[in-house]
């Protein structure tokens, strides 16, 4: 199966291809063990760009609607900041939340906002490096980082939702049972209905992951198909 691909014209950097085609010098390598073909490198670069773009976009958001807030209040999470739909949404959310004894939500309260952006940029740089060097080993590391990052990120979000919903001051004017706002979907509390969802930046992240994964393993699949 790997031998077949050998007969294909050299795609990924001709020097190596020529070298490996010399049976006297080196053992012939299977095609997928070799450096990435152009298409894979393109996908990796695309993945890096998507990742970079996602660092400027909102990843997650919570919209709150109540009878007296027909236009709603929002808290929108970017990798490096919190924002609202309106200028003062978070100020107002905190004003309301203090009635149930919730901690103040502020950028300072989320240290990860200080560095997530740089991690993303570092990841993007790593992926670009993978594409340029064509190193599979590095590509596997990038993919692994994606998986770990996703797991840690989702856990982090759950942790915060759980922390804010559960650590309610016991002397709050209005006592509500502890709760965990869902990461996605609708929730009801008193006069508010909340809708939480992933936002555009998250989908850029997902797309980036797809590009990087396909960039890493795609040539194998193509090779298999051809075989």
């Amino acid at each position: 199966m790997s031998a077949v691909s050998l007969s294909n014209e050299a795609q990924g950097g001709s020097a190596q291809a020529q070298e490996s085609s010399d049976p006297g010098k080196k053992k012939v390598q299977p095609r997928h063990k070799k450096k990435f073909p152009t298409a894979s490198r393109g996908l990796l670069i695309g993945g890096a760009i998507l990742l970079l773009v996602s660092s400027f976009l909102p990843w997650w958001g919570l919209d709150l609607l109540a009878p007296q807030y027909p236009e709603g209040l929002s808290i929108i999470v970017y990798p490096d900041k919190l924002a609202g739909q309106g200028e003062y949404d978070i100020v107002n959310l905190n004003a309301l939340n203090h009635y149930i004894g919730m901690d103040k939500i502020s950028e300072a309260g989320f240290p990860e906002l200080q560095y997530i952006k740089y991690i993303i940029w570092g990841m993007a740089a790593l992926i670009v490096a993978v594409a340029l060097l064509g190193s599979r080993k590095l590509a596997y590391i990038a993919c692994a980082l994606f998986v770990v990052g996703a797991a840690v990120g989702l856990y982090d979000m759950y942790h915060w939702l759980q922390t804010f919903g559960s650590n309610l001051a016991p002397d709050a004017p209005i006592i509500v049972p502890p709760f965990v706002p869902p990461m996605i979907g609708e929730n009801h509390l008193a006069n508010f209905t909340t809708y939480s969802s992933f936002r555009i930046g998250f989908f850029f992240l997902v797309a980036s992951a797809v590009f990087v994964f396909v960039g890493t393993w795609g040539d194998k699949l193509w090779a298999r198909k051809r075989a």
């Binding site: 919570l62 109540a66 007296q68 309301l96 009635y99 149930i100 509390l189 008193a190 006069n191 508010f192």
Partner: peptide, 13 residues
Amino acid sequence: MKELSRRSFIMGG
């Protein structure tokens, strides 16, 4: 993240 606002109920009505 809610407020039981009597004002808005009264005002709204």
